[in-house]
Write a protein that binds this DNA or RNA. Structure first.
Length: 98
DNA sequence: ACTATGACTAACT
DNA sequence: AAGTTAGCCATAG
């Protein structure tokens, strides 16, 4: 499988995360054929500004919103769909998908 | 071709 | 419990 295929797989999986739930870079990587968590992060970073993909529902394995330029915007989007992020940017365990 | 850098993680201290 | 380290590999310069 080529790298472009992996990218497509990553985006397909992210698109399937239900509203109000989240998952991790590592879990997404594990659902593909050979992608690494870093590649998933890279894929999210490449997304254009106005995309429809629910990229904000992807968090780190430590259950925290990853540290990046749009972290603030990500938390805002999460709050919009009812996901409460605590003062340490952490997500409640029961909201994880699958 | 080579180095540096990251929206990562699991394993150790 | 909180840092550090070693792997990771696509991108960018």
């Amino acid at each position: 499988m080529s790298r472009p295929d992996l990218l497509e797989q990553i985006y397909t999986i992210v698109d399937q995360i239900p509203a109000g739930r989240v998952t991790t870079y590592g879990r997404i990587a594990a659902m593909t054929e050979g992608a690494t968590p870093r590649m998933v992060g890279t894929a999210m970073r490449k997304l254009p500004e106005g995309n429809t993909l629910p990229w904000h529902r992807v968090v780190s394995a430590t259950r925290r919103v990853a540290d990046h330029g749009g972290a603030q915007r990500q938390m805002e989007k999460l709050r919009e769909e009812g996901i409460v992020v605590d003062a340490h940017r952490r997500i409640p365990t029961h909201l994880f998908w699958p």
